[in-house]
């Protein structure tokens, strides 16, 4: 099996008037992987996802999902046949019951698995004859998830799936995503819950102000990313630490924190040369990677 990227975009842009929601986004999402899509509110995550699904037209650039061009209407229909999507607001038709919603959705897909749908419905405790209107947000999210995974999509795209779920629901969701991945579905999901992404993702893409800041594997983050806390006898100069691999440098008085994505040794070497009185190297959590990357960008743009 050749693992072509399931999502591939090249310099994708979307602007609304003078506002650039997505800028020059070149993203490649691998098959057989769980990819987390991080970014602040308004960073352009939903806009990107909607462009992939043909709901929004790109201003420029191109993209393909499972080899189908996103801006060609007929190919867009074809790609939606093989992509499952759970939208940000998880709204379903209020006038349908749970059973009607499942019946309705099943009619569109030849690979629908009725037994899977039924077992998930029981697991998620969704009452068949309840109207969607009277479901809580958590239940609606579970129903939307059920509709997405009751077939065998090649790619599963979820926009903030854990929002509105209780802790048990979140565990069920993550377990479902793992199961999907084990069955060979590529999973691409956006989230604000960095810890969830950190637990199950293989790869992480960080978007900020419409730009792709990082596209890294979590194994690499754990293996190579380090935060180095330094103490000097006088105020250090940030410029001394603009080395290769350094992501961000933060100073407060005589203290300094350097976050690097590689070459921690060089930073330590430099610190020693500058007579640092204390050097402490530690691993860095994804949350810190995210915050340091985002703060660095907003500083650069001021």
């Amino acid at each position: 099996m050749i693992d072509l990227p399931v999502i591939q975009t090249h310099r994708l842009c979307k602007s609304y008037g003078s506002v650039q929601a997505v800028r020059d986004l070149s993203l490649s999402v691998r098959a057989n992987c769980i990819t987390g899509f991080l970014g602040r509110n308004g960073a352009g995550k939903s806009t990107t996802i909607k462009m992939l699904l043909g709901m929004i037209r790109p201003t420029s650039g191109e993209g393909a999902v499972l080899g189908n061009r996103i801006d060609a209407p007929q190919e867009s229909v074809e790609l939606r046949r093989r992509v499952a999507y759970v939208s940000e607001d998880k709204r379903l038709y209020n006038y349908m019951t749970v059973a009607q919603t499942i019946h309705f959705t099943s009619g569109f897909y030849s690979d629908w698995r009725p037994e899977t749908a039924e077992s998930l419905r029981r697991k998620y405790e969704l009452p068949s004859d309840r109207k969607v209107k009277s479901l809580s947000k958590g239940m609606r999210t579970k129903l939307a998830l059920l509709l997405a995974v009751a077939r065998r999509p090649a790619l599963l795209i979820l926009d903030e799936p854990s929002e509105g779920l209780d802790p048990v629901g979140v565990e069920q969701l993550l377990e479902t995503l793992v199961t999907q991945s084990a069955e060979g579905t590529a999973v691409f999901f956006s989230s604000h819950q960095i810890e969830e992404v950190e637990r199950i993702a293989d790869q992480v893409a960080i978007l900020e102000q419409g730009r792709l800041l990082k596209d890294v594997s979590l194994d690499d983050v754990r293996r190579c990313y380090r935060k180095i806390d330094l103490v000097f006898s006088s105020q250090p100069n940030e410029r001394d630490f603009q080395l290769e691999g350094v992501d961000s440098v933060q100073t407060s008085g005589c203290q300094m924190r350097v976050v690097c994505n590689a070459n921690a040794e060089d930073v330590i070497e430099r610190a020693r040369a500058l007579d640092a009185s204390e050097i402490e190297v530690g691993p860095i959590s994804l949350r810190e990677v995210f915050l340091s990357a985002v703060s660095e960008t907003s500083r650069a743009l001021v």
Binding site: I34, E175, V178, S181, A182, E183, A201
Partner: peptide, 15 residues
């Protein structure tokens, strides 16, 4: 198995 353990630990099957 890979799938069972991944589901149990809730980590990516690739792990």
């Amino acid at each position: 198995g890979i799938r069972t353990l991944a589901e149990e630990l809730i980590v990516s099957p690739n792990t």
